[in-house]
Design a protein around this nucleic acid. Structure first.
Length: 660
RNA sequence: GCCGCCAUAGCUCAGGGGUAGAGCGCGCCAUUGGUAAUGGCGAGGCCGAAAGUUCGAUUCUUUCUGGCGGCACCA
């Protein structure tokens, strides 16, 4: 006797083991047809699995959110089947679900081209039409390895060999296609439906390691019905419209150019935005007990050797070679024209590096004179301009550049202060993110990496202090094992861009190593020298990336305090020009960023144009306003206007535009 | 850095072995019009760079540079 409890609490009894399919049929023919899988005691299982003992069971149909998981995974299998039918020289590797879809990595002698994608997609639809039964088989590991090796599927064989334990493994078969898989799966390929689309073609390294060969990855998206697919594709399209690279150009904020790869040219409006953010940050740092410093761009190799960067980070550094026997002190980029020959020249050659980080310089400031424990913590901030030679393929608009400015700071403190400083920092960061409109963000906790400096005891202490502080701050963290810096654990504060890509912005790292390497110390209560701890921290991360995120977050429609142009005064006819100048003067006297549009154009045209430019407020002035001393205030996107006395309108905007 | 794709006017893009086109934008002229496109005229291009094939290359081939999407790497 097997008793099945359904989600509505009702119970059904069966004489013996019952499969999900039978259960569904027992409930009703409609459900039997719609059933995709079952959830047995909370775990998703195949419809064909026999339920042997009493259990809570739910039948999963395409209406369930869980169904997406199944559909996407099946879609990956169907894609793999299609690929192998079309391209017999292709080996399959892995094909997991991801957000909104799935991918599958294939190994083949020649890469796919975009036309292949169309063929594969067409074949996938055929396979769905064929409605092949999907069956589960349990195999002995050794046999499975041999089977895949004989088939020429070396990657699969390697995966099976790599599975820990010695239980049997499950394979799923559909038509002639058979794949290693934990399951569960749909009962047949016909259940997949039509709501899928292959989206991207890309290279990807086997096992995610750049030392390995490159596989061909095909990404797809898959949904329960065509409406969802359409909605998703529409959402992507809309998101692309807020891409900061597009808005940066359209709104004349910045541009990028190949004469300075990976560096932004900030235009007047973009620079206004940048400066506004910087002014705000400066205010918050001052309120947060930080002192601001500024340190050199070009620093001698000696310091980088001491700090460890020359050894660990050299590949990422811009190095300038300076021939000091020469009068001018010109520099040559590394590997470029600076050919030095002969011992005399070599002796006169110095290597300077553009700083990739500010920390070693901050330690130099810390080390000037002596520091008492009474002075700690010292929160030393710099809007530090850094250069890093990033791999060309990593560059991405403002999000990943080679020249950037960090809102960097190093907190020199005692071990005992780590926890409180961390909590103070998280509070400051959260408050600042809120001011920028980011209520939700992910915090990753990255703990000790395999290759690290410092004893396990030190790591235990650092990790605990960091974790306790996040708990004290009342914030959840996502564990990110093994991803800490080599000198200490870190918190990463992650924001998401318009098209769903995550970017680390803020960071908070505990460092016991650099103070040691650079011999920083303070005088303790006991009169002896002690090592301070350094907390490396940034809130925005880099201005470039943060502004990129900010542009996308607001889709260019900035809140008033951030908008590069806050108000445009637009006249209806030239008769209002004089009055418009008065309005401008009033706006500017209150510190508002305003522009005047007295062109001989229709008001409709002006409104359309400034709306496209995403100016938050348009003040329309014509004969009426001139006569009454008022302005008609029109908000971006709004249909209505508000008629207000000039002084009052400006005063209101001034208050609204105040920096938070 | 690796795989694939792309590079034509300021922007978005069409074209194609015989030295180029549209829309928007820009300039000029007319229009002075109350809340998201007034009309007319006009100027813009070494078709990313170099080499090769060819009588002839913007078009075909190769290399390079840059961009895009991933991967790897990272604020």
């Amino acid at each position: 006797m097997v008793a099945i409890t359904l989600p509505d609490g009702s119970e059904r009894k069966f004489g013996g083991p019952v499969t999900g399919a039978e259960l569904a049929a027992d409930i009703g023919p409609g459900l039997a047809k719609a059933a995709l899988a079952v959830r047995v005691n909370g775990e998703m299982k195949d419809l064909s699995l026999a339920i042997e003992s009493d259990a809570e069971v739910a039948i999963i149909t395409s209406k369930d959110d869980d169904a997406l998981e199944l559909l996407r995974h099946d879609c990956a299998h169907v894609m793999a089947e299609a690929v192998q039918e079309l391209f017999s020289d292709t080996q399959v590797t892995i094909g997991p679900n991801i957000e909104n879809g799935f991918y599958y990595d294939f190994a083949r002698p020649t890469p796919f081209v975009p036309e292949d994608i169309e063929k594969i997609e067409a074949r996938m639809h055929e396979i769905v039409k064929r409605d092949e039964e999907i069956t589960r088989e349990v195999w002995n590991r050794a046999e499975a390895v041999k089977f895949f090796k004989d088939k020429g599927e070396h990657y699969k064989a390697e995966i099976i060999e790599g599975i820990l334990g010695d239980e049997d493994i499950s394979l799923y078969r559909q038509g002639d296609f058979i794949d290693l898989c934990r399951g569960p799966h749909l009962p047949s390929t016909g259940k997949l439906g039509k709501a899928f689309k292959l989206t991207k073609l890309a290279g990807a390294y086997w096992r995610g390691d750049s030392k390995n060969e490159m596989l061909q990855r095909i990404y797809g998206t898959c949904w329960a019905d065509p409406k969802q697919l359409k909605a998703y594709l529409h959402m992507i399209e809309e998101a692309e419209k807020r891409d900061h690279r597009r808005l940066g150009r359209e709104m004349k904020l910045f541009h990028l150019q190949d004469v300075a790869v990976g560096s932004a040219f900030w235009h007047p409006k973009g620079w206004t935005l940048y400066r506004t953010v910087q002014d705000y940050m400066r205010k918050r740092l001052e309120g947060g007990g930080y002192v601001e410093v500024n340190t050199p761009q070009l620093v001698d190799r000696a310091l980088w050797e001491d700090s460890g960067h020359w050894e660990k980070f050299r590949e990422n550094m811009f190095i300038a070679e300076v021939d000091e026997s020469r009068g001018g002190g010109e520099t040559h980029a590394e590997g470029e024209a600076g050919v030095v020959s002969g011992a005399d020249h070599a002796a006169a050659t110095k290597f300077l590096a553009l700083k990739p980080m500010n920390c070693p310089c901050h330690v130099q400031i810390f080390k000037q004179g002596t520091t008492s424990y009474r002075d700690l913590p010292i929160r030393m901030a710099e809007f530090g301009s850094c250069h890093r030679y990033e791999p060309s393929g990593a560059l991405h608009g403002l999000m990943r550049v080679r020249a950037f400015t960090q809102d960097d700071a190093h907190i020199f403190c005692t071990d005992d202060q780590i926890e409180s400083e961390t909590k103070i920092f998280i509070d400051l960061l959260a408050s600042i993110y809120r001011d920028f409109g980011f209520e939700d963000f992910v915090i990753k906790f990255s703990d000790r990496p395999e290759v690290r400096a410092g004893s396990d005891e030190v790591w235990d202490r650092a990790e605990k202090a960091l974790m306790d502080a996040t708990t004290a701050a009342g914030i959840d963290v996502v564990l990110n094992p093994g991803e800490g810096a080599f000198y200490g654990p870190k918190l990463e504060f992650v924001l998401r861009d318009a098209i769903g890509r995550d970017w680390q912005c803020g960071t908070h790292q505990v460092d016991f190593v650099l103070p040691e390497r650079l011999d920083a110390n303070y005088i303790g209560e006991d009169g002896a020298k002690h090592r301070p701890v350094m907390l490396h921290r940034a809130i925005l991360g880099s201005f470039e990336r943060f502004l990129g995120i900010l542009i996308e977050h607001y889709a260019g429609r900035f809140p008033l305090w951030l908008a590069p142009v806050q108000v445009v005064v637009a006249t209806i006819t030239n008769d209002a020009d004089d009055y418009a100048a008065e309005v401008m003067a009033e706006l500017e006297s209150q510190g508002l960023r305003a522009e005047l549009d007295t062109r001989n154009e229709k008001i409709n045209y002006k409104i359309r144009e400034h709306s496209h430019a995403k100016v938050p407020v348009i003040m329309v002035v014509g004969a009426q306003e001139s006569e009454n001393g008022t302005v008609a205030v029109r908000r971006l996107g709004g249909k209505e206007q508000e008629n207000l006395a000039l002084k009052e309108a400006v005063a209101r905007l001034r208050d609204e535009a105040a920096m938070p």
